[in-house]
Simulated scan of single mutants.
Amino acid sequence: MSKPTVSSEERARLLRLATRASVAVALLLIGLKTLAWLQTGSVSLLAGLIDSLMDGAASLINLVAVAYALKPADREHRFGHGKAEALAGLAQSAFITGSALLVLLQGIDRLLHPTAVDDPWSGIAVMLFSIAATLGLLAVQHHVIRHTQSTAVGADALHYRSDLLLNLSIIAALLLAQLGIQHADALFGAGVALFIGYGAVRIGIHAVQILMDHELPDEVRNEALALARNVPDVVGVHDLRTRQSGQHWFMQLHLELPASLTLAQAHERGEQVRLAISTRFPQADVLVHKDPA
């Protein structure tokens, strides 16, 4: 995980930018894909439409969840509201799984009952525009993720990256349909559904890990331990516990210090450890306990 390069106020602004851009793009593509599907009757285009409908629903959830997650800690939520982001990711996983199942069933039905695709060129034009809009949105999202490490925006970006493959496969299906290969449309639609489902499982697993207070990555933990051990008089470090809640990390650790230190000196060493870790990871809330060696 990279070190954040912006203030908390700037992170909040970037998160709002990403969620609002996602909603705007999803609504635009829903309208265009609806028109294209009504004109062509393509199963692969229907897959794209349902996927965009799920994008819109998930992006709206993100918009609300991120706004809630950015609220400061209060009396009822001492650790803040950051897990709202993970809940949004879990809801996204459910929406995406539902869309994948719908498209898969439609693709199987079309394989059993083949139907010709009408006017594929209008569908291809819409998909090319969708690719351009998705690339623009991903550029914004990746910029935001680089500076915020947002779980919700990361889940959203994962889905939109899969949309690029989805859009390309729809174009291929429509071109093959133009050549008279009608089964290609249904096969591509079913294949995309399976791919979307795989992405949904990954999003869900990541969200559940955060909700279950999964430890931060080993490289983060190892660096935090190294920073603590580099402080003078620290004999050892043990019982490091970490978790993530939205934009915030929480770390707890025990320092082993010489018993000969005064209370004031031990407190000073603990403060040095806390500052060393929080300087490297500004999003971390660090709690240090001192033990006599």
Rank of each mutant, 00 (worst) to 15 (best):
F95G: 14
I96Y: 07
A86D: 02
G98D: 06
D55S: 14
D74G: 13
D74Q: 05
L105I: 15
A36E: 05
S42K: 10
S93K: 08
N62L: 01
G107C: 02
W37N: 09
A65F: 11
R78E: 15
R78P: 03
V103I: 15
A36C: 13
S59T: 06
L45G: 00
S52C: 15
L105T: 13
R75C: 05
A36Q: 06
A86E: 07
S93W: 06
W37G: 03
K83W: 05
L90A: 09
A94I: 12
L49D: 00
L63V: 01
A58G: 14
A47F: 02
A67N: 15
L70N: 13
R110H: 13
Q92I: 00
A88V: 01
A100E: 04
L45R: 00
L63Q: 08
R75V: 13
A100K: 08
T40D: 11
A57C: 14
H77I: 04
L105M: 12
R110G: 02
A58V: 04
L35M: 12
L70W: 07
G98N: 06
L90F: 13
L35A: 14
E76L: 13
P72L: 06
L53F: 14
H81A: 03
A47G: 09
H81E: 02
L70S: 11
L46S: 02
S52T: 00
A57I: 14
L49F: 13
N62R: 01
Y68L: 14
H81F: 05
R110V: 02
I61T: 12
G82Q: 06
Q106F: 15
N62Y: 00
Q39T: 06
G98Y: 04
L90D: 02
I61V: 14
L53P: 03
I96V: 12
K71I: 06
S52L: 03
L105F: 14
D109H: 08
D55Q: 15
L49Q: 02
M54V: 15
I50E: 00
M54K: 12
G56P: 07
G107H: 04
L111C: 01
D109N: 11
L111N: 01
R110E: 03
L111I: 02
L112T: 00
L70D: 10
F95H: 01
K83S: 13
A36P: 09
Q39E: 04
L112F: 01
P72I: 05
A58F: 03
D55W: 06
A86I: 03
D51K: 01
G98R: 08
G89V: 10
S99C: 13
Q92G: 09
D109I: 00
Y68Q: 15
L35Q: 08
I96Q: 11
Q106D: 11
P72Y: 09
V103C: 10
A88L: 05
A100M: 07
G82N: 07
